[in-house]
């Protein structure tokens, strides 16, 4: 065993059973009913990251199997594990044997990011689900349920995870802080929630990062962490471009990409968020800018060189800027 004085908090404070899972009461009640009847259908967990899909699944498995849960559960990731073939072989190997439990007659397979599978792969998956329906239940997790093909959807019970409410995350952060012997100010906890956008994993990681530099977490502390970890200065590039300083904007763009290790896609999505939230642009301008974001987010999927695509995006904004200034 290793020294456990340091743990990643998202694991340390991950709920161990369904009753501890927060913010998703309706879903949890239905899952509890499955546990007490020891029977369940295939399931789809749909919702954004950090809303408790994996946590609810793991808690369900523990409640269902007790100590032997690890032997009865297979966790797979559709986006990391190379292709549907690997997924199918591991499912086959796992499903061949009976559940290691005298009470529950089936095993569980959790397929994370199932919406990363292509349509063809999903059809293959559908067949696999039917082949092993006698002794395996599937739980597919995804961001968007619409990206799961209808034949699979119709075979599954759908659970929609909503982003966690502000008070759920704020309270959780405060509890963790107490148990870790640190203090978090109200406004700091709220600020963490704002940045995390309801993503609980991100919020907890953020708090842990804060604890690395302070025992009293203030807004300033959170700000220092966020400035390090999140590319908050992207919208300044837009301002530079609107003002016509293309070359500075372009250099700054590549610097930020490298500093934060962002893909072109990450950058455009961030810009779109920051433009929307910024008080510096009027609504008409926002519409124009976000139109470009959409256009280039799509073009990035068609292009080969993301730097060039982003620079073209900036050239577009420069032109927009010169039009706006002549109108005024």
């Amino acid at each position: 065993m290793t020294d456990v004085s340091f743990e990643v908090w998202t694991e340390k404070y991950r709920p161990n059973n369904l009753s501890e899972v927060r913010g998703q009461d309706d879903i949890i009640n239905r899952l509890k009913a499955f546990v007490s009847s020891k029977s369940m259908p295939h399931m789809i967990f749909a919702g954004m990251q950090g809303t408790g899909k994996t946590t609810s699944f793991l808690a369900l498995a523990r409640d269902l199997y007790g100590d032997t849960w690890k032997d009865n559960v297979l966790e797979l990731n559709a986006s990391d594990d190379r292709g549907i073939n690997i997924v199918r072989t591991s499912i086959k190997d796992f499903a061949r044997t009976k559940a290691v439990s005298d009470k529950v007659p089936f095993k569980l397979i959790f397929l994370d990011e199932a919406d990363a599978l292509t349509k063809d792969a999903q059809h293959a998956l559908r067949r696999t689900m039917e082949d092993y329906a006698s002794n395996v239940r599937f739980c597919l997790s995804c961001n968007y349920s619409s990206k799961i093909i209808p034949p699979i959807q119709s075979r599954c019970a759908m659970f929609r995870f909503r982003p966690l409410m502000r008070e759920v995350i704020v309270n959780l952060l405060k509890e963790i802080a107490t148990r870790e012997n640190i203090v978090i100010h109200d406004d700091a906890a709220n600020f963490v929630y704002d940045v995390s956008e309801g993503d609980c994993r991100k919020a907890e990681n953020m708090l842990q990062a804060c604890s690395a530099i302070a025992t009293e977490v203030t807004v300033e502390v959170v700000r220092e962490v966020v400035a390090f970890a999140e590319p908050t200065e992207l919208y300044e590039i837009i301002k530079l471009s609107l003002a016509g300083d293309f070359n500075s904007a372009k250099n700054k763009m590549s610097d930020i990409l490298i500093k934060y290790g962002l893909s072109g896609m990450d950058a455009i999505r961030q810009i779109q968020k920051q433009v929307w939230n910024s008080p510096d642009f009027d609504d008409k301008l926002k519409v124009q800018l976000i139109k470009f974001c959409g256009e280039y987010e799509y073009r990035l999927t068609e292009g080969a060189n993301e730097f060039v695509q982003l620079n073209a995006f900036l050239a577009e904004v420069v032109l927009l800027g010169s039009n706006v200034s002549t109108e005024n």
Partner: peptide, 30 residues
């Protein structure tokens, strides 16, 4: 950490990196 690498690249890695840089002892422990 029961999550895909793409999720962790976004939600975990930047903050872990922060800890590694600002508090090496905690970084080592983690």
């Amino acid at each position: 950490l029961h999550a895909s690498s793409s999720a962790l690249m976004r939600d975990f890695y930047p903050y872990f990196n922060f800890i590694l840089e600002k508090n090496p002892e905690m970084g080592k422990g983690l």
